[in-house]
Simulated scan of single mutants.
Amino acid sequence: MDTANGRSRMEHLSEIARNTFWGYVGCELEFMDEKKVIVTLDVREHHLNLIGILHGGVHTTLLDSAMGIIAMAARPGEDVVTSSMNVHFTSPVRIGKVTVIAEILHTSGKTITTQGTLRSADDTLCALATASFRIIEKKA
């Protein structure tokens, strides 16, 4: 994917995602190419759980979304869905910006395996994940 094409695809994905769960959460697609995706979120109070740290579901949403985008980038024109995901929560997150970086680990016929890390503004590793994505047939 060349830079101009990558930027165009990134802008297109950001636009269509704005009115979905992605946009509701507040995710931002910062960078995308065929090898890496970077997603950020400005963590606010409504993203926290009852003890004042980032809700695990938000961690998981960010990681799943970023890894899903890199899986889509690996197989343009094909639809992919998460088939499994494993998340390790390593450090609490409070208010502030977090960054997720997702990369491809392996691809095969109908499966793409990815990894993602979520880091706080001070570069502390807060969560890491691996996920498998299944390539599905598009319905006509």
Rank of each mutant, 00 (worst) to 15 (best):
G56P: 00
N86R: 14
I53V: 09
T61V: 06
V39M: 13
I112Y: 04
F133A: 05
I104P: 13
R134S: 03
A140F: 00
H88R: 06
S120H: 00
M32S: 15
G68W: 04
E103Y: 12
S83E: 07
T82E: 01
V39D: 08
E15V: 11
V39H: 05
D79Y: 09
V98Q: 02
L125I: 02
L29K: 01
N19P: 12
S83Y: 10
K36M: 15
V98F: 07
E45V: 04
A74V: 15
T3N: 11
M85T: 04
A4D: 03
I53F: 14
G26M: 02
V80R: 02
E11K: 01
G6R: 06
P76A: 10
H88T: 03
R75M: 10
D122P: 09
L41A: 02
F31W: 09
G23F: 04
I38T: 09
T124Q: 13
R134F: 08
D33S: 11
T90K: 07
G23R: 12
L48E: 00
R7F: 06
F31I: 08
E34D: 15
M72F: 13
I51P: 05
H59F: 06
T99Y: 04
S132L: 09
T61N: 06
A74R: 09
R9I: 10
V100W: 01
A71E: 04
L29T: 02
S8V: 10
I95V: 14
I53Y: 01
H88S: 08
E30D: 13
E28N: 12
S65H: 01
G109A: 06
I69T: 01
N49M: 10
V100Q: 00
F89H: 05
K35T: 15
L41T: 02
S83Q: 07
E34G: 06
V43G: 05
L62C: 03
F89P: 03
G77V: 07
L54G: 05
Y24S: 11
T99K: 14
T113E: 15
G6N: 13
P92L: 04
T99R: 07
V98Y: 04
